[in-house]
C-alpha cells in the first residue's frame, strides 16, 4: 500500500515528476489531497495525474515546483521551501506570507552578491529611492524629494550609458 507523505494513511493521489533527471513523487491521502486543492472526483476515486507519463495534455490540478516537486501542502507542514525556484512557483501564495512574517516588507534593500550583475544593485537602489521619494512627497519634504529625484535621474542616465 502506498501511504500519504504527510500522515501515513492510504494514498489516493500520486504525482510523479522527472526534472533534471531527478524523480520526485508526491503521494497524498484524500484529506491532504483535498487540502492541496486536488480534484479527486466525486467518489474519492484515485486519479493519477502524471502529465509526462500520460502524455495527452492532461494538466495537473495540484501546483508543484517544477524543480523540486514541492507542493504548498508539504510547505505548510514544515514551513520550509524546497528550492529557490519555489519562490517563483508559489510567488502569489508566498508574498502575503512573507509580508506577514516580515512586517509588510516584500522588497529587499540590502546588498546583492558580488557575483551578481551590477544592474541588480542599481535596480535595488532605484526601487529603494522610489520608495523614499514617495515617502518624502507624502511628508511634503520637497527639498529631500528633489535630491532623491536627481539621484534617480543620475542612476537612469548611467543605465543608458551601460546599455550603449
Amino acid at each position: 500500500m502506498i501511504t500519504c507523505d504527510l500522515c501515513g494513511k492510504n494514498a489516493v493521489y500520486h504525482d510523479t515528476r522527472i526534472s533534471n533527471g531527478v524523480t520526485k513523487t508526491v503521494n497524498l491521502c484524500e484529506e491532504h489531497a483535498r487540502k492541496a486543492g486536488v480534484d479527486i472526483g466525486p467518489h474519492g476515486i484515485s486519479i493519477s495525474l502524471d502529465p509526462e507519463m500520460l502524455g495527452f495534455g492532461l494538466s495537473p490540478t495540484i501546483q508543484s515546483c517544477p524543480d523540486c516537486g514541492m507542493t504548498l501542502a508539504i510547505y505548510k507542514e514544515n514551513s520550509l521551501l524546497g528550492c529557490p525556484e519555489c519562490y517563483v512557483t508559489f510567488e502569489k501564495q508566498l508574498l502575503p506570507v512573507i509580508a506577514s512574517l516580515q512586517e509588510k516588507h516584500t522588497q529587499h534593500v540590502g546588498r546583492s552578491p558580488r557575483s551578481a550583475n551590477a544592474a541588480i544593485d542599481r535596480h535595488i537602489a532605484i526601487r529603494r529611492l522610489l520608495s523614499d521619494l514617495e515617502r518624502a512627497v507624502t511628508q511634503e519634504a520637497y527639498e529631500e524629494a528633489a535630491h532623491i529625484r536627481d539621484t534617480l535621474r543620475e542612476l537612469h542616465k548611467n543605465e543608458g550609458n551601460d546599455a550603449v
Binding site: 519562490y87 512574517l101 540590502g110
Partner: peptide, 30 residues
C-alpha cells in the same frame, strides 16, 4: 561571506534578496 562568494553563486532574487529555505530568513539572511 565574501570568501564564499568567490567560490559559488548564491541563490538571489532582486526583489526578495538572498533566498532561504524558510521565508523568515529571506532578504538579508542576517
Amino acid at each position: 561571506d565574501h570568501r564564499m562568494e568567490d567560490l559559488v553563486a548564491y541563490a538571489f532574487d532582486d526583489r526578495l534578496g538572498f533566498l532561504t529555505a524558510c521565508p523568515t530568513n529571506v532578504g538579508t539572511g542576517a
